[in-house]
Design a protein around this nucleic acid. Structure first.
Lengths: 168, 168
DNA sequence: ATAAACTTTCAATATATTTTGAAAGTTTAA
DNA sequence: TTAAACTTTCAAAATATATTGAAAGTTTAT
């Protein structure tokens, strides 16, 4: 396989994976493109490369910046803005974990915490089942939350090292 | 807060979380409903409770069964099919991990493995960047894969115990 | 065999999400 | 200023995803 075809495959695969995990396909594709491109690209470059509109490219890039995955670069003597992606995989994983934790896990944890406090007749099966399920899910969500917190602080080698101690 | 309102909130929260993670909102809601309901429900019960059509209920329940989260129950002397959810949170997490690994992680791993093998001029920055990114992402994906494998085999207490040793 | 009870299918429809593109906005240089 | 170079916005259009509901299919009891 030649490089251009390989790039294409990577962009497609990344886009598909993203869309399966609730991330806009185009956003994942722009990210993928920047990941396999050595130099920073302009909006125009990205539009051409992925055949998307200016508006789409602009919004997607802003989104990627809000996720902390892409940054702007200014080149001396140029008006155009260039964009590049952090290519450190561990940073990417941490950044995604950080954002999804903040955007999706924390809100749901807040609700679970409330629901855990709902009072009821402990003889009532409806209440008992509700309470048990919510309490258990809350515990697991908290465990996930703590694990992510650890991951956010950790160095890659230390983190995977600890994970692999689990195999022993 | 009273139980019915609390149930409603749980169903909404679960549905929202699901949809943010690429799982059909209705599917997550049906699952949530079954999680907080002590007894098995009929298609009809679910249709009424969530105000969804028969077709939707039927397909969603089949989906949930294919995910291994819901099972059919037959009551003696009744023609109707009843559905109930496994309420063990650790089982749920494992089941979801198992399915997403099979459906989404494995295919992408296969592609990454291929792309890792693409040859090129090691002086060419385009090639170098592509190769480094793909290789690194492949490594991380393999780590995730192995971790999930461990999780699938593990008992809950052992798994979280191992995770929390990481804090020490 | 018949019919009632129940489940499944899927084309049509509705809804949600994404994308477009041109106009409006901004910045810079002269 | 002015105008060229560039970025942002957002209503409209396109696309993708989810839902409906009635017809077709299946099972069971008689």
């Amino acid at each position: 396989m030649e490089l251009p075809e390989a790039k294409q495959k990577f962009i497609e695969a990344w886009g598909k994976l993203g869309s399966e995990w609730g991330i806009n396909r185009t956003m994942a594709q722009v990210h993928a493109l920047l990941l396999v491109t050595p130099d920073a690209l302009t909006t125009e470059d990205i539009m051409e490369n992925l055949s998307i509109s200016r508006g789409n490219a602009n919004m997607t890039l802003r989104d990627l910046m809000s996720w902390g995955l892409v940054e702007k670069q200014h080149k001396a003597g140029e008006r155009k803005e260039y964009f590049f992606a952090d290519k450190n995989t561990w940073n990417i994983a941490r950044q995604v974990a950080k954002e999804r934790r903040k955007r999706e896990l924390e809100p749901v944890l807040k609700i679970l915490e409330e629901l855990t406090k709902v009072q009821g007749d402990s003889k009532d099966p409806a209440y008992k089942t509700f309470n048990t399920s919510v309490t258990d899910i809350n515990k697991m969500a908290k465990n996930v939350d703590k694990t992510l917190e650890t991951m956010l602080k950790a160095e890659e080698s230390w983190f995977w090292g600890s994970i692999f101690k689990m195999f022993k």
